[in-house]
Design a protein around this nucleic acid. Structure first.
Length: 419
RNA sequence: GCGGGUGUGGUGUAGGGGUUAACACAUCUGGUUGUGGCCCAGAAGAUCGUGGGUUCAAAUCCCACCACUCGCCCCA
């Protein structure tokens, strides 16, 4: 653990990868705005209780263990955000967004922090694209966030995309389902692995995403929540499915996709893509009609999704999708030190001011033209502008194309317009 | 928290008890006057992850730790 080493789970984004970030962020921003979502930024730090919420369930306790929490001298506790949604909802309440035209559609892009063991595409600091619709119960809102997610990956060039869809019910019907599931699993207890027995006692819904062998068959015959939804939740799902079908958007009902905490309601979805290590999901989202109340605000329905930028990029690279190249200066200004350096510096800034990308050859004293030409080649510029004593004396500049064209001399004053 | 894999110049690798730790790429300089790529020559760059142990001798064998990585747990 030396001072000159990245902290665990942190990443440097080097220039050659950074272009993928611009590609993804630009696309996400463009698309979200096309859908009528407004860009917002919320703080990276919030008071801990905003994220701590309900407490009590097994996953909540775990959640707290994986948060970066700082206890301050004045007894307040703050936490690096482990997700976006809570901050959005807090901002909605605190800024009186209930008085804005409803619903409020927001998106943001930025880092979140989770103190977990890193794996492929999962880092302790990672960035998310998050989009949420607050204040709307219409399943068309669910559709909207789903399609925003799906079309993001499509427009980025992803292949092999599928929707995984389910409903997690609501406080009316979910407990009844959990009871039915628990009953079924308890009856089959001798067939469960140790880890699943533990899940059964702590958080039965989690048994549904068990990876233990034999569970596919066992769970296929288990009660499915879709058969236990109350009338309201069933109608919501039916409506959403009808809208997806109207768009000719295929989806797979995945009865193993659920959420264990009460404020998650109705729609749950993921987008899966081929590749990317153990996790197929490139995004997860759903409805949380109980969250605003859970953090002490007025009841406000919400639906949204989050998608990790690093994982999107990993997927792009695995699928062989190229991000656009970063623009590079097309000109290098070479000189021989002394007065020629002054002229070169002046010219370089004139070019830049005129919108032409230009590099200045650096040299404390004089430097061989060969070396400067090599540098030009290495950077891949198209043209070298040479300012030697002769040129400066004559008020000219030598224009040396690197692509095989003829070398010419033009007046210094014409360079900006002739390039 | 648990399990597998891996740690040798900036990067990728070779070397698996013996004296100057090798190679490729990258970097820098030069190949006569002010002209790139290819080529040639040279230079710089490594406490062989860290600490301990075995041995006359450890990059190499043993132990521990650390880091990275893949997966599990969990996934808000």
């Amino acid at each position: 653990m030396t001072a000159i080493q990245r902290a665990t789970g942190m990443q440097d984004v080097l220039p050659e990868d950074r272009r993928y970030w611009d590609f993804v962020i630009d696309k996400a921003t463009d698309l979200a705005q096309r859908y009528g979502f407004q860009h917002i930024d919320v703080p990276i730090i919030e008071y801990t209780p905003l994220f701590a919420r309900g407490m009590g369930t097994a996953s909540d306790v775990f959640v707290q263990k994986e948060m970066y929490t700082i206890e301050e001298d004045d007894d307040t506790s703050i936490t690096l955000r482990p997700e976006f949604t809570a901050g959005f909802v807090r901002a909605f309440i605190e800024n009186g967004m209930m008085t804005w035209p409803q619903p409020v559609k927001l998106f943001s892009i930025g880092p979140i922090f989770r103190r977990e063991r890193p794996q492929a595409g999962r880092y302790r600091q990672h960035s998310q694209f998050n989009a949420e619709i607050l204040g709307e119960l219409d399943p068309a809102a669910d559709l909207e966030v789903m399609m925003l997610a799906m079309n993001l990956y499509r427009e980025l060039g992803y292949k092999g995309l599928t929707f995984q869809l389910n409903s997690t019910g609501c406080p009316t019907c979910k407990p009844i389902y959990i009871q039915a599931l628990t009953q079924y699993l308890a009856d089959q207890q001798d067939k469960l692995a140790a880890i699943d027995k533990e899940r059964l006692s702590k958080n039965p819904l989690r048994v549904l995403d068990s990876k233990e062998p034999g569970m596919d068959k066992l769970l296929a015959e288990a009660p499915h929540i879709i058969d236990h939804l109350c009338a309201d939740c069933a109608a919501h799902l039916a409506d959403l499915r009808g809208l997806l079908e109207a768009l000719d958007q295929s989806y797979t009902i995945n009865f193993r996709l659920v959420r264990g905490i009460d404020y998650y309601t109705k729609t749950v979805f993921e987008v899966w893509a081929e590749g990317i290590g153990a996790q197929a999901a490139v995004c997860g989202g759903g409805r949380y009609d109980g969250l605003a109340e859970a953090i002490g605000g007025p009841s406000t329905p919400g639906v949204g999704f989050g998608s990790g930028i690093e994982r999107i990029i990993l997927g792009l690279q695995e699928q062989g999708i190229e991000a656009p190249k970063t623009p590079q200066p097309t000109v290098l200004v070479a000189h021989f030190g002394g007065e020629t350096k002054k002229t070169a510096v002046t010219l370089t800034y004139q070019l830049r001011a005129a919108g032409i990308g230009a590099r200045l050859a650096f040299a404390r004293d004089k430097r061989s033209l060969k070396s400067q030409m090599r540098e030009a080649n290495r950077w891949g510029v198209r043209t070298v502008l040479i300012l030697g004593e002769d040129e400066v004396a004559a008020g000219m500049v030598t224009v040396r194309p690197l692509d095989g064209g003829d070398q010419t001399q033009i007046p210094l004053s014409d360079v900006v317009t002739k390039l």
